[in-house]
Design a protein around this nucleic acid. Structure first.
Length: 423
RNA sequence: GGGAGAGUGUCCCGAGUGGCAAAGGGGGCGGACUGUAAAUCCGCUGGCUACGCCUUCGUAGGUUCGAGUCCUACCUCUCCCA
């Protein structure tokens, strides 16, 4: 089915990364001829990226794997202004220090997927680059910018973009700042083209308009030929947004979401998403994925385990992935005790005196948000101590509750478990 | 500058006659059924030292036995006119 000649486009296409490509034939030919340089922009509003950013990261990964050069562009400049999207969103302005800290955290994630200059490798034309648009955006002079860049933009056409049109029709406010995002992003593309010879910008399908603006701007300012490649917007088959769970975003940094929880996130993938996610979020060969995708009924769970382990291995390493898989197997399938479950330590003396269940669940382990919540869960039969339902909210946990393994297991529902260990 | 509206349970949307811990959704959590899935059904969805107490309807005052509801000022947002 693949109609491309280049490995790069073939792989992206087979694995389901491509939504739209501008001038696919020309881009394909370029990819065959030589080394492409492509970029994707990331906001650095938090100290980590979450699962939602994984798809673009994987695109950069495949780009590099097929011999091309990826650029991860940090929105250091745009973040400084504060993204105005989301009408009620607290427009907290991040300080320079915050942004720099975030950059460090985010860079750590990229280094797991991409090979950067100086990271052990010798100079290779496919070494990844991390750029920061603050480097050029901060220096801009308004008048010069308007004259050099602004003159190439037609407001008439900008108003016709879907993103703008929708806001106008729904009578949502669209600030001038936000209106300019398109312009800044287009300028980023041209700047990267100038600095690194970057000719391709990738992104989610909602970025199409912005990317095309960049292509136009490049042609007008320097006559460069540039390309757009967008990925489908990801939702689960039941329509939910990717990457958000009850506990909040599924972050990629281990200190924000543990490898075990990360593994669990993928383990709980809906049936209908398994094949798609295997292609997008693991690097397994397509043949193997096809076999897994053919599994029916309950057997799909095997595919989900593979998905979870492979996806976790990419972000947290093989060892952590295997350990998470082992923990899950013991906990869910063998019903035994896994020492590797999340653990909270308490002073032995405190335990000797006894700890109230409410306190243990709410304060100690934060499995529930308050004592009241704990009471409700007890009524609903959702709390367990050592796999036995809690029925009395005045129950005390003492050293007698320690199992042979030297810990007390607290559970909320069937899936969330925490161990309490005396020290 | 003039005029008309809006801000509700710190996840979102949204009803609300002066007696309100405040309808209804969505989302989330728990239970049942399953396969750690989906769908479906049931329960829960301010806090606490809990037959009571405290804090909540943009902010600050006021009227009232009693205010989300009435009055005043202010803040923010939207729309229309200039």
């Amino acid at each position: 089915m693949s109609t491309y000649k280049s490995d790069f486009l073939n792989i992206l296409s087979e694995r389901g990364f491509i939504h739209q490509v501008s001038e696919p034939d020309v881009l394909d030919a370029r990819a065959v001829e030589g080394t492409l340089t492509a970029y994707i922009g990331f906001d650095c509003t938090a100290a980590s990226l979450h699962v939602g950013s994984l798809l673009p990261i994987m695109m950069l990964y495949w780009l590099q794997q097929t011999g091309h050069r990826p650029i991860a562009l940090m929105g250091g400049g745009t973040t400084r202004v504060g993204d105005p999207s989301g009408k009620d969103e607290s427009r907290r302005i991040l300080t320079e220090d915050d942004i720099n800290n975030n950059l460090v955290g985010i860079r750590a994630i990229f280094s797991k997927f991409l090979k950067f200059e100086g990271a052990g490798g010798n100079a290779d034309k496919s070494n990844a680059i991390m750029a920061n648009n603050a480097d050029w955006l901060n220096k801009l002079n308004y008048i010069d910018f308007l004259r050099d860049v602004g003159k190439h933009f037609s407001v008439n056409r900008m108003l016709a973009f879907d993103s703008v049109k929708m806001r106008l029709e729904r009578q949502h406010e669209l600030s001038f700042l936000e209106f300019n995002y398109m312009v800044l992003q287009a300028y980023d593309f041209v700047e990267l083209n100038k600095l690194y010879g970057c000719t391709v910008q990738m992104g989610g399908s909602d970025q199409w308009g912005n990317i095309v603006s960049g292509i136009d701007l490049g042609r007008r300012m320097s006559g460069a030929q540039m390309f757009a490649l967008t990925a489908p917007l990801l939702t689960t088959s039941s329509g939910a947004k990717m990457g958000k769970t009850a506990a909040g975003a599924v972050w990629l940094n281990a200190d924000m979401v543990s490898p075990y929880d990360y593994w669990q996130y993928w383990r709980n993938t809906e049936d209908g998403d398994v094949a798609r996610f295997l292609k997008l979020f693991t690097t397994l060969p397509l043949g193997e994925i096809a076999k897994l995708a053919a599994l029916q009924g309950a057997e799909i769970n095997e595919a989900k385990k593979v998905l979870a382990t492979e996806a976790t291995a990419l972000v947290h390493g093989r060892a952590a992935a295997d350990e998470s898989a082992g923990t899950a197997r013991k906990t869910f399938e063998e019903g035994t005790f896994a020492q590797s479950l999340p653990t909270v330590e308490v002073a032995r003396a405190t335990l000797e005196q006894g700890i109230g269940v409410l306190n243990a669940f709410a304060e100690l382990t934060s499995l529930v948000s308050s004592n009241g919540d704990a009471r409700r869960q007890i009524k609903a039969g959702g709390l367990k101590v050592n796999d036995a339902n809690v029925t009395d909210e005045k129950m005390m946990l003492t050293a007698k509750d320690l199992t042979v393994d030297g810990a007390i297991k607290l559970s909320l529902g069937k899936k969330k478990h925490v161990l309490i260990k005396p020290v």
